Computed example of a mutant assay.
Amino acid sequence: MEADNKRLLEKMADLEDSSHRNNIRVRGVLETIVQEDLPSYLLWLFQAIQASLEPADLRLDRAHWVPKPQNLAQDVPRDIVTRLNYYSAKEAILTAQRKASEIPPTYVGIALYADISPTTMSRRGDFINVTKCLRNNKLPYRWGFPTKLLIWCNGSLTKIEDPAQGMEKLKTWGLFPDTRTAASQAATWKVTAD
């Protein structure tokens, strides 16, 4: 019964994530920008991050401020959620942001994220020690469904399905504590998605 409930919750989270597939969550934009100006502001931001996209590729279906969580400080701006018409444009923008070495000064402090369900976000949060170690070792990673980390190591795929398993794998691979150098990791590790 418990396993059935878990599968049902995973499927519901997946459905919600699918409905957010084209969304980008934008964090750090000052709330001095009024709702009417959000689309044009976001288009300028996305063009600055991924200049190779044509204006026709950057069609926004909607953009709005989200309600502020109760535990967020008053001086911290609310997030913006926007939906791009084209999934490929959304992916190009998020990929460019991850690879960007610098961002124009106008947009410093702004971060972009995929918009995922609270259930998925909470589940990914359980892996924070594993993902922090991967980032500290300059290793990119991808998420799979249901929530798991997908890592290619020395030519074979390793699926990390729970945080404890992840910490054990990191120790086995000599990454936790962070014992390998970034150069040797880059030569022997590859991370991919489903």
Rank of each mutant, 00 (worst) to 15 (best):
E91T: 14
T82W: 01
N154E: 14
R123Q: 00
N23Q: 05
I110P: 13
G28F: 02
D4Q: 01
E54P: 14
A73E: 15
K68E: 03
K169W: 14
L84P: 11
G144Y: 15
D75R: 13
L30R: 14
L84A: 07
K132N: 06
W44K: 15
T188E: 09
N22R: 14
Q70N: 12
P140Y: 15
Q185C: 10
R83L: 07
A183G: 01
D17M: 03
D61F: 11
T158K: 14
L112S: 05
L53F: 14
L43A: 10
D75C: 07
V76F: 08
Q47H: 11
F127S: 00
A193I: 09
N129W: 00
M121L: 03
Q97T: 04
R21T: 13
G109Y: 04
I24V: 10
A114L: 06
S19A: 08
D4K: 00
I103E: 01
R25K: 05
F46S: 10
V81Y: 03
Q50M: 14
A89I: 07
A89P: 07
D37F: 01
T131F: 04
L170E: 02
Q50Y: 10
K171S: 05
T179C: 05
R27C: 15
G28S: 05
A187Q: 11
R78H: 09
P39G: 00
K138L: 05
D4A: 01
V26M: 02
E16V: 03
F127Q: 00
L15C: 09
Y87A: 04
G166R: 00
L150K: 12
D79K: 12
